[in-house]
């Protein structure tokens, strides 16, 4: 049954106001209510973050370490505030590389997984190659891409794709294979074509797995883009960090690191939000029902 009436607990006869089947429809909460709910659920990490910033500030204010080694939070934020266009431009470059790398990695990953699941021969042939591509240290082959593709966007995107696509393939293959075999037999007795079985059963069933892969891939894509910038670039946060490193300009270096991390978090949250929209039915989204004293 959908829900059990709260009045069962009381043991008394249902009050005249309660509907006969014990189900009360509630209206959807408004925006203000939902924002308040969000704040209530997620204030903890922000408090922790604030505590870390305070600790950072305390260390620098007490001059426990030399300021040229660890700049104060104030100096770091000043570094950004004094040159907003500079940071915006380079963040944009890295963000663009990351996003493009992520999207391409997701597309290639999903495609490769679908092909491999549909043909055991292809899977046996391709899998070792994929593994090989994954275990090559990206930092080691990044210079090669610069030689091949120049100093533009090319090598950064290639490194980002290489780093991000492996978790997508692995999770998607697992997802496509996780379908209940009885569901597939049922589909066969429905006279379903391969395509129908894929789009109506296999693909939707694989999405929860795919999204875990995409979340890992989102964080990898940022690393990939920055690694690409390290080996040869004239723009991007990797370039900013390398330059600041050369000038011993730690506030800018810290600022670059901070923005880079935020970029990764932003992409991760974006994927989570997308998951929330696409998979409202998934078990991880369902909370246990709570009792109410209304």
């Amino acid at each position: 049954m959908v829900t059990h009436s709260q009045s069962e607990r009381a043991g008394s006869a249902p009050s005249p106001a309660s509907p006969p089947d014990g189900v009360v429809e509630r209206s959807r909460p408004g925006l203000g209510e939902r924002l308040a709910g969000f704040a209530e659920r997620s204030w903890r990490p922000f408090v922790l973050l604030a505590a870390i910033v305070v600790a950072w500030w305390a260390v620098t204010a007490a001059e426990l370490v030399e300021p040229y080694l660890v700049p104060s939070p104030g100096d770091t934020f000043d570094a950004i505030a004094s040159r907003p266009e500079y940071f915006w431009e380079h963040t944009w470059t890295t963000g663009y590389e990351t996003l493009l790398g992520f999207v391409i990695a997701a597309a290639i990953g999903v495609f490769a997984a679908v092909v491999m699941v549909n043909s055991p021969t292809v899977e046996k042939t391709l899998y070792p190659l994929l593994l090989f591509a994954q275990v090559i240290p990206k930092i080691a082959i990044a210079p090669l891409f610069v030689v091949w593709l120049g100093f533009g966007l090319g090598p950064k995107i290639v490194v980002a794709v290489l780093m991000a696509f492996f978790p997508v393939v692995i999770s998607m293959v697992t997802g496509l294979k996780s379908v209940d075999p009885e569901m597939l037999q049922l589909s066969a007795t429905m006279g379903a074509k391969r395509g129908q079985t894929f789009w109506k059963i296999r693909f939707p069933a694989s999405l929860p797995h795919l999204f875990s892969g995409l979340k890992v891939a989102a964080t990898m894509a940022v690393t990939g883009a920055v690694v690409g910038e390290f080996v040869g670039a004239d723009a991007g946060l990797g370039f900013v960090i390398l330059q600041a490193n050369g000038n011993l300009d730690t506030p800018v270096l810290f600022a670059g690191l901070l923005i880079m991390s935020l970029l990764g978090v932003l992409l991760f949250v974006l994927v989570e939000w997308l998951e929330y929209l696409v998979l409202p039915w998934h078990a991880s989204r369902r909370g246990e029902g709570t009792t109410t004293n209304l």
Partner: peptide, 30 residues
């Protein structure tokens, strides 16, 4: 595999992203 049968397993084998009605209509869609 013959399409002129109806099959029921011990597990209901329902698609969890479809409502009851939509699960029933899967047969019609296929």
């Amino acid at each position: 595999p013959r399409p002129d049968v109806g099959y029921v397993f011990q597990k209901a084998a329902l698609l969890e992203w479809r409502s009851a009605r939509k699960n029933i209509l899967l047969q019609a869609e296929m």
